[in-house]
Design a protein around this nucleic acid. Structure first.
Lengths: 115, 115
DNA sequence: TCATATACTATCCTTTTTGTAAGTACTATC
DNA sequence: GATAGTACTTACAAAAAGGATAGTATATGA
């Protein structure tokens, strides 16, 4: 078991803030989670995530800037763009997994509390 | 290795949203992280987390409502209140740990990128 | 009585985030 | 030529989040 001193918690606090700076907010982790089923086009992503084009555009730019998503323009008839997770985004797997698990757990707890 | 189908990602998406509903935002996880070094009073928490009383009050109420933090009034000379993590909050350990680890990793990556 | 400390709460305001609706540019199809 | 599909962008508006400042209530000590 790890100790939780005031100092170690100060460092932890900073690390958590750093993480939140990159993947905090309403959409970042949801988008990454959606992109895990494979590369997607802009409108496709918009529909699947339920996010408006304006926000999607902004979020994707930020994710790209932080090296979590790659953008590829395909030379198709109507030009298409593919958004895909990068290798670096795999480092977030633990975070994603932990949050998914907790989400399931918590929902279960709430549902049982209602019964 | 887990499969990432469109369906499994839809469920994951919901779970992540559920989690974000409870511990999303700028302060919730930071507060929990700070409280891991032990129970604290209101002003103490305000100072350590660097959060204004108004927001702190609101955040603590929400954390308490969701069963993650307990509030105890102590019958001292100037009345004091202790905020403490609940047992249920321990279920967030994996999330916290994963985010801490990623924060460290990412900061290291950024710093090296600057060199 | 004045200052200080605890734990908030209230008011006001700014910033950030999110959303809606419409528009641009390009190509292909009816 | 009108319509539709791709990928966005722009303008505007609403809502949510966050913060600064001051005030309330209680009690202790100088």
């Amino acid at each position: 078991m790890k100790k939780h001193t005031v100092e170690s918690c100060a460092k932890a606090k900073m690390a958590i803030r750093d993480t939140l700076d990159i993947v905090g907010g309403k959409w970042k982790l949801v988008l990454i989670s959606v992109l895990r089923s494979g590369k997607k086009g802009f409108n496709e992503l918009s529909r699947e995530a339920g996010i408006s084009p304006r926000i999607l555009s902004k979020e994707l730019q930020e994710l790209e800037m932080n090296g979590l998503v790659s953008r590829t323009v395909c030379d198709t008839k109507p030009i298409t763009v593919q958004y895909e997770l990068t290798d670096y985004s795999q480092t977030l797997n633990e975070v994603l997994l932990a949050m998914e698990k907790w989400g399931y757990l918590h929902r279960k707890k709430i549902v049982q509390g209602i019964k």
